[in-house]
Design a protein around this nucleic acid. Sequence first.
DNA 1: AGCTGAAACGGAACGCTGCTCCATTTAGTA
DNA 2: TACTAAATGGAGCAGCGTTCCGTTTCAGCT
Lengths: 198, 198
Amino acid sequence: MAAEGPAGDAPSRSKRADAQRNRETVLTAAAEVFVTDGVDAPIRRIAARAGVGMATIYRHFPTRADLVTAVYQHQIEACAEAGPNLLADAGSPLDALRRWTDLFVDFLVTKHGLADALQSDSDRFAALHAYFLDRLLPVCAQLLDAAVEAGEIRPGTQPYELMRGIGNLCIGRDDDPRYDPRRLVALLLQGLQQPPAA
Amino acid sequence: MAAEGPAGDAPSRSKRADAQRNRETVLTAAAEVFVTDGVDAPIRRIAARAGVGMATIYRHFPTRADLVTAVYQHQIEACAEAGPNLLADAGSPLDALRRWTDLFVDFLVTKHGLADALQSDSDRFAALHAYFLDRLLPVCAQLLDAAVEAGEIRPGTQPYELMRGIGNLCIGRDDDPRYDPRRLVALLLQGLQQPPAA
DNA sequence: AGCTGAAACGGAACGCTGCTCCATTTAGTA
DNA sequence: TACTAAATGGAGCAGCGTTCCGTTTCAGCT
């Protein structure tokens, strides 16, 4: 699937300059609309904001997942690159894992509806899910392995399961003072420190 | 809000027998459709299945949440009643809490899209969320308190946060062999056993 | 510069859904 | 049986995703 990078990865592919410009215009508009209306915002609204027709958006980004991916690509990338750095800088692998999950959670909760989209029942966002996995799963696995290696957490936890668990905990309205995803993610990591249950 | 029970609680309120019958017919049809199409199934489809008009459904169940609530009411009730029983029967409060969350998770994962709906970004399901909370939060709080009292888990965890965390972990496609909500919920409960982090 | 083929475009159009409104039917009663 | 109000059904409206096609615009060539 990601033979040459995710959708929207190759802006140099197109011949015409207007197409390039429109692609950027759409990305900017989408980013703005996502902030206020979430990643589920109507395509019409994004098109209106960008001053283009809907078909233009569909041509550049065949699925909504492609658009969302393109908008957040840089931040996903930054999160991926932060993994090895944290492993080098932090006091211990577990500490690095904690800080990395903090970054990941921060990213998810500040993007309205992104976590929801990632685990969406429908597969409208399948490509987005896939991109997150492609990019972040190896990082998470590396951190997890390092922490196991150091004897800080028990072995046996699958990176996919942990990542999806963290993602799931970030789902929902982010303005509820009674619920802080960070606390529960911290609890989850605490659980990893326990020796295997009898 | 729940002055005299949740929506659809008082089947004896109506005068006419045909209305009673239709209410049951709709509930049966909805239950069937929910199994195959999830709780987001189009009202039209449920109406067609029940052999009634859409307005009939909307009159009996003003919001989708009311319909879903009515369909699952008995099972929610059973889950609520199981709490005190487990506390009496199980070996320890923590054991009771574990078994109860198992029941809760089983309930959620076997109802297609129910967990998703509970934390839905939109508030189409606000009433459902409220009903779950009204009915199950006290039970969860009781189990949690008992476990704290027994010194089996650390204090400070809010029942709401725990319940929502568990609910969140149950969100998403239930046919993915790589992800088992039960394992992550178990991890969360493990985390509760740890002494407070330094 | 002017021409031309193709790429890119915009928005109308279609299908599906949630929800409402109202003319019609029907149950219970006098 | 006739009456009245509850109950009904489905047409109708609005919003959204997605496609389709006539039109516009670009880039290279003469």
